[in-house]
Design a protein around this nucleic acid. Sequence first.
DNA 1: GGAGAAATTAACCCGTTGGATAAATACTGG
DNA 2: CCAGTATTTATCCAACGGGTTAATTTCTCC
Lengths: 240, 240
Amino acid sequence: MAKSKPVKAKPALKWQRDPEGMRIRILEAAKQEFAAHGLAGARVDRIAVNAGANKRMLYYHVGNKEDLYLAVLEAAYDKIRSEERGLDLEHLDPPEAIERLIDFTWNYFLRNPEFLALLNTENLAKARHLKRSTKVKSMHSPFVEMIRTVVIRGVESGDFRVAVDPVQLYISIAGLCFFYLSNSATLSVIFGRDLLKKEARDERLAHMVALVLAALTGKSTADFGKAKVPGARAAAHQPV
Amino acid sequence: MAKSKPVKAKPALKWQRDPEGMRIRILEAAKQEFAAHGLAGARVDRIAVNAGANKRMLYYHVGNKEDLYLAVLEAAYDKIRSEERGLDLEHLDPPEAIERLIDFTWNYFLRNPEFLALLNTENLAKARHLKRSTKVKSMHSPFVEMIRTVVIRGVESGDFRVAVDPVQLYISIAGLCFFYLSNSATLSVIFGRDLLKKEARDERLAHMVALVLAALTGKSTADFGKAKVPGARAAAHQPV
DNA sequence: GGAGAAATTAACCCGTTGGATAAATACTGG
DNA sequence: CCAGTATTTATCCAACGGGTTAATTTCTCC
């Protein structure tokens, strides 16, 4: 029934040509390449190969190297904004909401290391491309407003002692997560230990949540110091 | 008197040759170049020109591009470590010491934006060069130990409620400062305002100090939220 | 004041790389 | 089944950029 034209729903047979798929593969390959090598270090030919395509295809489907880079950057912002909108903090009580926020940010960065690298690359370029992107400029993070209402609720309920500027808090939470992960390579060398192994990551997340919540609530809920001794309340002196 | 050989104290007349000076100029130019364009984006010829030298000189005095880069990186670490050691926190009471620490970190990053860029570049390279540098690996930051003793003193004196892992706190303080400054270009575009102008910088520093001290002491001393209303205690609702 | 070493300059080499051209192949609608 | 269009492939190329070679100049020290 209704066979008419094989629109493009299920390609049943493997396509010989697949413009949309090709574009996606190109952008994915480009993301990896730019994230791994930066703008200047990225190689157009490598992107082509990794996209299973010909170099000419990049120019046909997206544009030159910079167009490619901007498309990747815009897609990256689009993705995180989209996931951010999915976070529902309304029905959580304020401290839980903040914890949820930190947890999301941390795990998003952990799951998307390319995003961190792309941001660094763009900042090296002094946001030259972002400035020209009306698309990204119109994509506001819902987090600032979310934080604003959570903080207000927290102060009203007595959970939080003080009102914080939501933008500052947003940047602080992002910064706590971002720096650790983005600089894990150099920090791991400096400290002589792997900051990305499971225990270290868990310890870091616990620390960040404890730090921010302690600041907001005035109560030191979670283990703020070494997460080494599970269940143990932080003691005055740490053995090490 | 004592004219013997014009050693090299005061070059009275301008020198025709100046190996030490040349090396310094090369490293300075290289630092600027790598900081501005990253490793792959840096141009050896530009470094030469900006050093007031010939390209061949780079190879003569330092080595190839990667040698140059590593020399710059090592010098950068050496510089910050040196300044860190100059910070005396012993005689300050714990909260002041922490504030001093944040203040130093913030201002060092502000005064040395190239350092931030270099770290990002090195992390893009997964710390490939740092790993090979025994020099840098031996340069431990005195801050971790400083923080450890300050925290212990703070807990003993009752100023601080909980013991924090000094490494975590060190990373948190660095992260709060680093992220804001390193990503100021993209963040400024996203938020549609200049995060580097004086008021914004002051507000940020106040926020960071308040955040960390509130977490440690349990008391919300400084203005934690908007620094907009000087003197005013943070109110439940912010007008904006 | 001259030989030898140190520092500096000028010119060239050659693989790489972003981008362009043109031809071929697959798809579409009629 | 055919013309026209969309997609893909196969080459090519000029500029760039790191690195090298060799000649030149300046300093040192006897």
